[in-house]
Design a binder for these strands. Structure first.
Lengths: 165, 165
DNA sequence: TATTGTTATACTCTATAACTATA
DNA sequence: TATAGTTATAGAGTATAACAATA
């Protein structure tokens, strides 16, 4: 005999996220960021890349060759962490540490031909993952989410830059 | 001589976040979640708590004594990770592992009087941190952000629950 | 003296595998 | 046989301290 009152589709009873938790911004942001990373990494894994790697390459494509710390300051990545990221990309043959023309301490990180070649494909995979991640939202909400988060992140970035002087 | 054209306030030249980066949802979500955690942890540090600890306590207050895995499923925390969280809170004297009435394998995690006492204060600190974090946004946007993220997180939670059968 | 890149190191967050005591 | 809790362990992600080369 099938029960007349159905359980909410696909939800094991008792494991719903309670509202006290769903109303906490920290929980929402953490879960969202975590899930997004999962989806993106799954999409980029065949190329041995993460979203951060792709972001780094996009930045270089837009700005031209940059020293590691310059990249780190734009992407909010520590200089010691930058070493590993650039190591990864260099090992994959996607970027190269060239000599910096004005400062012999610094490197100029450049995209290799292979990097320039792969980047559009990687970006495409990343954007497909993003669409998949946002698929539950109506298009207007996707745009709104981006707008609000952008404002929030810019605010805190600016604030930290002011404190750093 | 003061320059007539002022730099954008507080922004060291060249370290703006480029638009190619600001348009990536992964970057926005990661930075937001990371910054939120910073602000929250700063507020709760005097009590030796993180946002997750407070979330755990709130859940118990709402639902009553629960086994660790039950809590973990609501908060999306692995059972091995739950051990450490409950250890932390027990060490602080805020929760207690009681015997579960129906299952001698399981614990019933309860708030101690000290936990019940501290929780409102901890929640208050957490919410103040949240307000500080969101202060750059107009009130309507704060509400909208919560609504959109809630929908997103619920969608993925539901989807994972369906796949887990 | 300060800065770029580097290494070694450590800390947080999280998950996997294997164990124990129950069910 | 499966499950609740535990332990040991390992992997990401990130940061601090100290160092060499250079500014």
């Amino acid at each position: 005999m099938t029960p007349i009152i159905k359980l909410k589709q696909g939800m094991p009873p008792g494991h719903e996220i309670p509202n006290v938790v769903l109303d906490r911004m920290g929980f929402l942001l953490n879960r969202s960021a975590q899930k997004f990373r999962e989806v993106t990494e799954e999409a980029l894994r065949p190329h041995g890349l993460t979203g951060k790697h792709v972001g780094l390459m996009v930045l270089i494509r837009e700005r031209g060759a940059l020293p590691q710390q310059e990249i780190g300051k734009c992407l909010h990545v520590d200089r010691t962490t930058m070493v590993a990221f650039v190591d990864d990309l260099e090992r994959l043959g996607l970027v190269e540490r060239k000599a910096h023309p004005d400062d012999r301490r610094a490197h100029a990180i450049e995209l290799t031909p292979k990097g320039k070649d792969l980047l559009p494909k990687a970006l495409q995979l990343g954007m497909a993952a993003e669409r998949k991640f946002l698929s539950a939202l109506p298009p207007a909400d996707r745009k709104t989410l981006g707008r609000i988060l952008k404002r929030l992140v810019l605010h805190h970035h600016l604030q930290e830059a002011q404190q750093a002087r």
